[in-house]
Design a protein around this nucleic acid. Structure first.
Length: 427
RNA sequence: GCCGGGAUGGCAGAGUGGAUAACGCGCAGGCCUUGAGAGUCUGUGGACCUUUAGGUCCGCAUGGGUUCGAAUCCCAUUCCCGGCGCCA
């Protein structure tokens, strides 16, 4: 959510920034918001005047009553104002609500370094790491590999839960858990505190964590309850501190969230339908940071480098892209994606997403900071998030990149200690 | 799920139908002091208008209701605590 004061004081600046997203709807919304805000302030001032009049009348009643004088005239005077006040009150409430709605829909301001572009094709490659493997035999995709090795069962998952679900079995489970444990070690070594969040969240909290428009497409709602399954641990992690004031000595607050993620993936029909690249449920270890505005851009780079370290240690070739204005989403001011090489697709595909959300989430959730206890609040914290490891996609990458001619898989060395020191997954 | 208790500023906590939501802690500033501390004075919820100063309204979990007037009375909802029940 943007600061309404900033919009009032520097409307052109905000408009220019929003226009970089290339969606005229946002400009329309902003114009409507500005006009509505103006009207709201006028009406509010008028309402306050009326309320003042009534207040004076009721005070009069109190003092007349004390000296046993007749109050029927004064009561009439006060009652006459009621209708006017009630009507204007309703108007003001409706206006305020609409203003809030616009504010919740208008996306975050973009950092100046975000490249302009309509879609992911305009994302700018920043760096590349690792050698793309050269296979001198016909390679298999992760579905063939996983099925043959009996570590992934998509068919039976379809029978039981529908498409985009999967069973992991045997060594598949071990890799999944090894990835989690490896990520835990990496994050702990880098000073992150481990957190297992609730997997369900109330609407009030969820609305602060993400954009309203994302709800229906992405989130599973529990029937007859005000609860949603989390799409990523980022959401319960940021909401964890809603309505709180954090002391500066505790910033930056670094958290590693561990949880399954549930996503409807509505609107992605036909995209990545086969296999476990895009599924309704997967496990993820997430990096999350609360910090001061001064710290956030440096920490954004740090989160990226943490995620890159993991890629390097596992040994997967990847590239980093600076996500462009059309692809960046509502809440981020700037976003890096790490894309891993997927041999069977002959392409780099997203495996890590690393965002600086500046104060967009914290303003919605009212997460502020102050110098120390009792001191006045300084402002809203900045929030950042980045994937550490999303196990589903990582398993796809490992199977495809480390496959051997006979269909076996070489296990990356860093994972072996968590898998009983086996080096290979064989049939 | 049932019964009971509760929700007031950054924190603690009074106020049970009538003007400014008390006192305190913390924090900020002034005075005092070589400095710190102690002491002392002032300030310390939000919004809007006007801005040198100031003015007005809102705010006691949320939403309704009663009343000329609600933190206070009534109804509903949410959350927290305790007890009982159920349960991995």
């Amino acid at each position: 959510m943007l600061d309404i004061k900033l919009i009032r004081e520097r409307p052109t600046f905000v408009k220019n920034n929003l226009s970089r997203r290339g969606n005229p709807e946002f400009i329309e919304m902003l114009d409507k918001l500005i006009a509505l805000d103006k009207k709201w302030r006028l009406d509010l001032t008028e309402l306050n005047k009326l309320r003042h009049k009534r207040k004076k009348a009721t005070n009069e009643i109190a003092s007349l009553k004390k000296i046993n004088k007749d109050i029927s005239n004064s009561i009439k005077k006060a009652k006459n104002l009621d209708g006017l006040i009630e009507n204007l009150e309703k108007e003001v409430v409706v206006e305020k609500k609409k203003i809030k709605e616009y504010l919740l829909k208008i996306p975050n301001l973009l950092h100046e370094t975000v490249p302009i572009g309509l879609d992911e094709n305009k994302n700018v490659q920043l760096k590349k790491w690792g050698e793309i493997p050269n296979f001198d035999y016909a390679i298999k995709n992760h579905i063939e590999l996983g099925t043959k090795l009996q570590i992934i069962d998509i068919k039976r998952a379809g029978k039981v839960a529908g498409s985009r679900f999967f069973y992991l079995k045997g060594s598949g489970v071990l890799i999944d858990l090894a990835l989690i444990n490896f990520a835990i070690k990496e994050m702990t070594n880098k000073g992150f505190e481990l957190v297992e969040p609730p997997y369900l969240m109330r609407r009030e909290a969820y609305q602060g964590a993400t954009a309203l428009a994302d709800f229906e497409d992405v989130l599973y709602k529990i029937e007859n309850e005000n609860l949603y399954l989390i799409a990523t641990s980022e959401h319960p992690l940021v909401a964890m501190f809603m309505k709180e004031v954090i002391e500066e000595k505790n910033l930056p607050l670094k958290i590693a969230g561990i949880s399954p993620c549930f996503r409807k993936e509505a609107g992605s029909h036909g995209k990545d339908t086969r296999g476990i690249f895009r599924t309704h449920q997967f496990n993820k270890i997430e990096q999350f940071i609360f910090c001061t505005p001064e710290q956030s851009w440096l920490l954004h780079e740090e989160l990226l480098s943490n995620a890159e370290d993991i890629m390097k240690k596992i040994g997967l070739p990847y590239r980093v892209v600076n996500v462009c204005t059309g692809d960046i989403g509502t809440v981020a001011a700037k976003k890096f994606d790490i894309e891993v090489w997927m041999p069977a697709q002959n392409a780099y595909r997203e495996i890590v997403s690393c965002s600086n959300c500046t104060e967009y989430q914290s303003r919605r959730l009212d997460i502020r900071y102050r110098e120390k206890e009792g001191a006045p609040v300084k402002g809203f914290v900045h929030t950042l998030n980045s994937t550490a490891i999303a196990t589903g996609r990582m398993i796809v990458a490992i199977l495809e990149n480390f496959q051997q001619e006979d269909g076996s898989i070489i296990i990356p060395e860093v994972l072996r200690e968590y898998m009983g020191n086996i080096k290979k997954i064989n049939l």
